[in-house]
Amino acid sequence: MAVWYSLLLVLGMSLFVYLGAGLLGLQAIFGIVVPYAAILVFLIGFSMRILGWARSPVPFRIPTTAGQQKSLGWIKPSKVDSPYTTWGVVGRMAMEVLLFRSLFRNTKAELTEGKLAYGSSKWLWLFGILFHYTFLTIVIRHLRFFTEPVPFFVQALDRVDGMLQIGSPVIYQTDVILVAALLFLLIRRLVNPQMRYLSLPADYFPLFLILGIALTGIMMRYFAVFKVDLLSVKVLAMGLATFNPTIPEGIGVMFYIHLFLFSALLAYFPFSKLMHLGGVFLSPTRNLPNDSRMARHVNPWNAPVKVHTYEHYEDDFREKMIEADLPVEKQA
C-alpha cells in the first residue's frame, strides 16, 4: 500500500504539472512561484528544525562506542571509535559524514542450518554512498545553469562526469549510477519481507520523488522527444537566481515536471527523514566524547537539593558517638 501510495503521489504530481504547465499554460506559476516558495520553505523549515534540535538538552554523554574506552594507562584506548578528545570526535564525525562508517558495520542476521548467524553486509553501504555522492555531483553540476561565467570547478566536474564520451550529448556516469543506486534502495525495501513490513510512505516517497527527478532529467537530456532548449532553461534559471524571473518561450513540459518534482523535494525536505542531512551533525550518540569517567557531567537544571553529608552528621553527633564507642573519622 505504502509503495503504491508513494508512486501514485509522484505520478499525480507529474500529471498535475502536465495539466498546469503543459495544457493550461501556467508556466509562470510552475516556473517562478513554485520554485521560490519551495526554496523559502526549505530554508526556513531547515533552520527551524536545526534550532529545534539545538533547544533539546543533552546533559550527559551518551555516545555509542565501538572501541576501548580511555581508562588505565596501560590499556590502549581507541581514539576514534571511543573518542575522548575533541579531535577524536571530529575524526569520528568526519568519517561518519564522509564515509558512512557506522553503516559500513552493517550486519545481516540469517538462519543457517537452524542456527542464527551474523554476517557482514556491505551492499546497503555501497549503494547508499554511491547514491549520496552521485546526487551531490549532480546538484553541483546543475550550477552551470545558475552561474555566469560557469565556475571552473563546475566545468571540471562536468568534464570528469562525462569522460566516457558515449553518445551526444555525452552520458554522465553519475546519471547511470544514481538510478542504479536508487533502484537498489527501492528494491531492497520491496523484496525483503521484513524490510517491506517496516517501510512507510515516508521511506518510499523520497525514493520515488528522487527517481522521478532523475528520470525526467535523463529523458530531457538523452531522448529526442523530450529534449528542451538548454539556453532557455539557463535564462529561466538565471532569472530566478538574479531575482528577475522570466519565462522564456518554448521550454518543454518535461522541464516543468523536473522543476516541480525538485521543488517538491525541497519543500518536503524539512518535514522528512531527509533531515538527516543536518541531523547527522547533531546526533548525540556520535558527536559527544566518551569522557564520563574523566569529567563529571552535572545536569545543569537539577533542582537544588539540601544535602546533609556524613561529615556534617558526624559533627552533629560526634560526642554521643564517642560515648557509645562508635568509630568516628575525626576525633573531637
Binding site: L43, A54, E148, M238, L282
Partner: peptide, 26 residues
C-alpha cells in the same frame, strides 16, 4: 550549531548571493 547552520545556508544560497546585483545577458 549557529555557525554550522549559517555555513550551510550560505552554501545552499550560493546561486543567489553570487549573482547579486547582476543581470544575465542572454
Amino acid at each position: 550549531i549557529i555557525p554550522g547552520l549559517l555555513i550551510f545556508l550560505g552554501l545552499v544560497t550560493f546561486p543567489f548571493w553570487s549573482n547579486l546585483g547582476r543581470a544575465y545577458d542572454v
